[in-house]
Amino acid sequence: MLPQVTPAAPGVRTRPARRGPQRGQARAAALYLLPTSVILLGLLAYPLYQLVVISFYDYGQPQASGAAPLVFLGFDNYVTLLGDPQFWDVLAATVVFAAVCVVGSLLVGTALAVLASRANPLPRMLLFLAALGAWATPAMAGSYVWLFMFDQDFGIVNEVLGLAGHSWTFERFSAFGLVAAEIVWCSFPFVMVTMYAGIKAIAPEVLEAAALDGASATRTATSVILPILRPLLMIATIQSIIWDFKVFTQIYVMTGGGGVAGQNLVLNVFAYQKAFAGEQYGLGAAIGVVMTVLLLSITGLYVRAQRRTS
């Protein structure tokens, strides 16, 4: 999925002459794409279609098991959802929380990638081992390990800081901060590995040329290295936005399903509480549709902005 950076040669229009072979090529391409599109349609398009359909119905457990008739609601689930002040509160919290996590993992990941590209082999290997360890830890296990570290009575953090009895998950911002730190910890390795590969791929001649032209280190970083890394940075950012916007496990585990009086709910956990725990599958599906639309538009806007500036 690496972006194609070779620009298309403008003004070359050989279409009429190559019509025959091109049609053959299109057929071949369609054949090659067929298996993928069947799988994508089956596993992605159909569930998404069902999600949208369910969001238009009053669809709870009695309806699913055939004990109650289906009632078509039209946009009622969406009206209920958008009229719920808690939804807007949770949406705002999710956006801010995801933004903090994205910025955090990009900063930490990029900084450590730069560090790794300049470090000696042994410390670099240790750094990579530590990062890959964090990356390989399942979200559930990672969340519990962090909870143990920050446990109010037995946690090592309170022991070292001398804060025995301090609860890190009681205050809203403290709880969000703790979860954000865990998410940055488990998602920076992806950014770091990606950026490290990008930095290593920059030809030494380019940097040499910049140095010969008398560019300062800052100038080299902003005018040479960053533009070359931009496509990779874009992938890392979009991936992080999607991951962090959809975060579920860490919030669910570390704040006990959404924190004191639901203060730490994010959209995905909110949808889960409504749809599965509360058995309002129609309303839960509406939340899912809203989330999908939001993520698609954020990603779309970001990709367009990137295209324009590059």
Binding site: V53, I54, Q63, A64, S65, A67, L70
Partner: peptide, 10 residues
């Protein structure tokens, strides 16, 4: 054909 969510046949 599939314009309604699935229901179990009871």
């Amino acid at each position: 054909v599939a314009c309604a969510p699935p229901q179990a046949d009871t």
